[in-house]
Simulated scan of single mutants.
Amino acid sequence: MAIAKERIELNIQLIIGSIREGRRGRSIGEWAYETAAARGDMSVELIDLKEWNLPMFDLAKPPIRGEYENRLQQLWADKIKEADGYLFISPEYNHSYTSALKNAVDYLYDEWGRKPAGFIGYGPTGGIRGIEQLRLVLIELKMAALGNALHLMRVHEKIENNRFNGDEHDVANLNYVLDDLLWWSKALHEARNIQ
């Protein structure tokens, strides 16, 4: 007799890593959110670092201790803890990712751990070098930084009225990244619950 497994609703957070004026990350994030939500196989949430407005990390206690005395840091920890996986959306700045995203990642430690991270990079080279830099940092936080990523080039040609319009190739690649992210999210969710 087969035992039916309970269906798990996984929560995937899409994190927009650019906060500058005139950014393209918001429209790319909204497009990715709509595409992911339309699938119906995960719960998705769009998180915009510009709305969180995290000041540069200067708190006395290192996040690795998990002792959050700062109210905003605790709110950020509570929000990030809700997710089973993350899709980071970041442009490439000088062969790396944004300082705002680095700052947001550095605010916490345990909340990121043992969860997968997928990526959307954009810029002249599709954000490839920036995503590579981000992977190294996330691995240090005990995350499963996935090898697959969506690299968008010439995004300015696909934005009209502040709306990103990904082509068929972009949609197919995003779904490939989401499939991978969902698989790892489920596997690591189950592993965390066994411990």
Rank of each mutant, 00 (worst) to 15 (best):
F57Q: 10
D58R: 13
A60D: 15
A60V: 13
K61T: 15
P63T: 00
P63L: 03
I64E: 12
I64Q: 12
R65Q: 14
G66Y: 11
E67Y: 02
E67S: 10
Y68G: 10
Y68A: 08
E69V: 11
E69D: 15
N70R: 07
N70G: 01
N70A: 10
L72M: 14
L75S: 14
A77V: 08
D78A: 12
D78F: 03
K79Y: 03
K79C: 01
K79S: 10
A83M: 06
D84P: 04
G85V: 02
F88W: 10
F88Y: 11
I89K: 04
I89Y: 03
I89H: 01
S90K: 00
P91R: 00
N94Q: 14
N94M: 10
N94C: 03
H95R: 15
S96M: 04
S99E: 12
L101T: 02
N103E: 07
A104E: 04
A104C: 08
A104S: 11
A104L: 06
A104R: 02
A104N: 01
V105S: 04
Y107G: 02
Y107T: 03
L108S: 04
D110H: 13
W112F: 00
W112M: 01
W112V: 01
G113Q: 11
G113H: 02
R114P: 02
K115S: 04
K115Q: 07
K115N: 03
P116I: 02
P116R: 00
A117M: 01
A117P: 10
A117D: 05
A117F: 04
A117T: 01
G118T: 06
F119I: 08
F119Y: 13
I120Q: 06
G121I: 01
G121R: 01
Y122R: 03
Y122T: 00
G123E: 05
G123F: 05
G123P: 03
P124L: 11
T125F: 11
G126P: 00
G127V: 05
I128F: 15
I131H: 05
E132W: 05
Q133L: 08
Q133T: 09
L134M: 14
L134R: 00
R135V: 09
L136S: 14
L136I: 13
V137E: 02
L138H: 04
I139F: 12
E140W: 10
K142T: 12
K142Q: 14
M143G: 07
A144D: 13
L146R: 09
G147P: 08
N148L: 11
A149L: 02
H151E: 08
H151N: 15
H151K: 09
R154T: 11
R154G: 08
H156D: 15
H156S: 14
